[in-house]
Amino acid sequence: MKSQKFWAWLIFVLGAAYFIIPLAATFEFSLRMRRGEYSFDAYASVFADPYFASSFAYSVIVGLFTIVVGILVVVPAVYFVRLRMPWLRPFMEFVTLLPLVIPALVLVYGYIRLYGSSSFIPFTGSVLGTDILLTCAYVTLALPYMYRAVDNGMRTIDIGTLTEAAQIAGANQLQIIGQIILPNILVAILSGAFLTFAIVIGEFTIASLLNRPAFGPYLVGIGTNRAYEPAALAIISFIITWGAMGMINVLGRFAPRTSARTD
């Protein structure tokens, strides 16, 4: 009993060390810009760089659009598959896993070939077109997370009976999804949204190959040209990402409780 506890703790400490030591070392290094003493100079330098703000703002905006488009695509799809075509679910599971299996590089080369300036639909021919393409690519990247979050949310409510109850009261499909289904899976959707946000903020490959001024390429650029700022940026991105994860947990506590079910 006692030795079991010891081993459990040892593994926990080793695991924690694996994550915390590099983080602590990075943090320590980021404070050493000024010779001989700790300071936040690296952070000040990062925040003073106009590209930091502009690339971060760009990624936030693309992230928000990605979330909205993702919700508009995923929620109705999951709803109708669960309600009308349950036999399609294994197929959905498979399709939504593909973005995890196919490298982003392959995806973006495919996009460039399909939507390049000499193609029939030259999305990359204009800035707006490229932004739209980037958003679509991010929706695809975030699909595995958004799908699972929404699917889990719908599992906790009896969407079949709730849909019928709303229908017989006179509601149409749009009213049912907007007024009944969405509010009841809001927490699940938000957790999918924060995961999407975390992915978009850090993404490098696609943004860089489409040549958009996103936060990911900015991070990499700084990393190759400067010494202390990359460490500071790593810590900042870490805080942003974990902030998003933390929000998922906080929101989970506000999950609406479903009414008693008898089946």
Binding site: I157, D158, T161, L162, E164, A165, A166, Q167, I168, A169, G170, A171, N172, I180, P183, N184, P256, R257, T258, S259, A260, R261, T262, D263
Partner: peptide, 20 residues
């Protein structure tokens, strides 16, 4: 007719109140 055009009321075994 579709259910939402029939002007009927229904009570389900599992209550089916809207939880939100």
């Amino acid at each position: 007719l579709k259910p939402n055009q029939r002007k009927l009321g229904m009570v389900f075994q599992a209550y089916a109140l809207f939880p939100n």
